[in-house]
Every structure is written in C-alpha cells, then in structure tokens.
C-alpha cells in the first residue's frame, strides 16, 4: 500500500508548536494488517473529542481535548475497534467522533487539510448511528473514487441535531467535491431535496466556526 505521502506529512508535523496534548504528539508504531486479515487501502485513526459547553472555543482547547482512540489497517481491526466503541446515537453531550487517514490530524490546520474543505449533512436525532456506519464503510471501502482526496469523516453530536462531515484535501477541485457529494447522497440514501453544505477550512479558520456560514446546495 502506498502510504508514503502520509508518512511524509507525519514528519512535517513534528515541528509543530508545543501546545499539543500527549495524544497528538505521541509517536506511534505504524499499524499493519495482521496475518490473514483484509488490508485496507489506507490505515485510519479514530479520534474522540468530548465537548464542554460554555468553554471558550479555540484551536488550543481543541488540541488539548482530542483523544487518540486507535489506528486500523485492516477490515478486522476496524470492526474490533468499532464493535467496542459507543455509537454516535449513544454519545451524550456534545462530542465529535473522527475517523481520519493515519497521519492526518482532524484539524483545519493540518497540512493535508489546509487547502481543503468539508461536506456537511445535518441529521435529525436518531439517524446518526446508521448514517455514520454507512459513511465510514464507504470511506474504508474506497467507494468515493476520488483518488487520495478524502482526508476523513466526522460525526458531531449536538443538542438538537447530529452533523456528519466528509473532509477532502482540495476545496477548489469541483470535480472531486461533486463526486464526493453524489457518493455521500448515495451511501447515506438521502432524499433528493436534502440540503448539503460545503465549507472551506480556510473560512472555518477565519470565523472560528465549523458549521456556520456554509455554502448551501440543494439538488
């Protein structure tokens, strides 16, 4: 498997600021598929961010809060983690569950993300667990067919809604973003009039908000 690009990103991360928490900084052994296991095209890492309502939002807090869960390189390893983790529908309070390519941090500032953006789908309560599973299975199975453009996926559990996002590397690449949108609609089985929103990470950095001031698409 060709993960060299991501290894390269890892090295360039090491000169980041000292503000990162242990989880973000820690050097980890590369994860490989076990004997007889079904290899994935890319290794992926689960991250979890519990949120504390009322606390000041900042990139620093985000880095301090984020928790490393584990990295998977095979289908079997994925299920071993997934089966022993809470489903988005069971998570309490405000929290984010991330599944990102190994070597890409789930942050706007990561070198793999800084030119990128994300598709956002807002779901009413009760739908997130199934939607999240369908989304990450499609991502792990390389169903998006956009080369190396996918960076990761996030499910954000909020008070009144749950939000699912897919991050890609190049926000300006329209062929890629529309293919991701169409695949997302297909795998989540979204009704035709579903509102989908896209937001560039550059804009998120400017307004320090993940889900406000998005570009809205209805089809």
């Amino acid at each position: 498997m060709n993960n060299n690009k991501f290894d390269a990103l890892k090295t360039s991360d090491s000169d980041d600021s000292d503000n990162e928490n242990k989880d973000m900084k820690e050097e980890r052994e590369p994860v490989t598929p076990g004997p007889g296991e079904h290899a994935l095209q890319f290794a992926y890492t689960f991250w979890f961010t519990p949120r504390f309502p009322g606390r000041q939002a900042s990139s620093l807090n985000f880095e301090q809060n984020i928790k490393y869960v584990g990295t998977v390189a095979s289908v079997e390893q994925f299920w071993a983690y997934y089966s022993h983790m809470g489903r988005p529908g069971d998570l309490t309070g405000h929290s984010d569950l991330h599944l990102f390519k190994d070597g890409v941090k789930p942050m706007w500032e990561d070198p793999a993300n800084k030119e990128g953006g994300k598709w956002i789908v807002r779901l009413r309560k009760g739908l997130a667990s199934r939607a999240w599973e369908n989304l990450i299975l499609a991502m792990l199975g390389e169903q998006f067919m956009v080369g190396e453009e996918i960076c990761g996926a996030v499910v954000s559990v909020r008070f009144q809604e749950d939000i699912i996002s897919v991050w890609n590397k190049t926000a300006s690449d329209q062929a890629t973003t529309s293919r991701i949108r169409d695949t997302l609609k297909r795998v989540l089985n979204l009704p035709p009039n579903t509102i989908m929103e896209y937001k560039m990470h550059l804009d998120s950095l400017k307004d320090n908000s993940s889900f406000r001031n998005t570009d809205v698409f209805v089809r």
Binding site: V75, A80, S95
Partner: peptide, 27 residues
C-alpha cells in the same frame, strides 16, 4: 458495504483491541 459487513463477526473482532484506551463516553 456487504463485503465489509460479512467480516464483522470474524473471531478477530470479538475481543477489544489490546491498546483500546478507556475514554469516558466512547470506549
């Protein structure tokens, strides 16, 4: 999707990963 789901109940997936951290609310 169905290929991935078929591997869900492989014996390898039954036990929690060795290094699974205890994180309140998710693991």
């Amino acid at each position: 999707r169905h290929e991935l789901l078929q591997l869900r109940n492989s014996p390898l997936t039954r036990t929690p990963p060795k290094n699974l951290p205890k994180i309140a609310g998710v693991t």
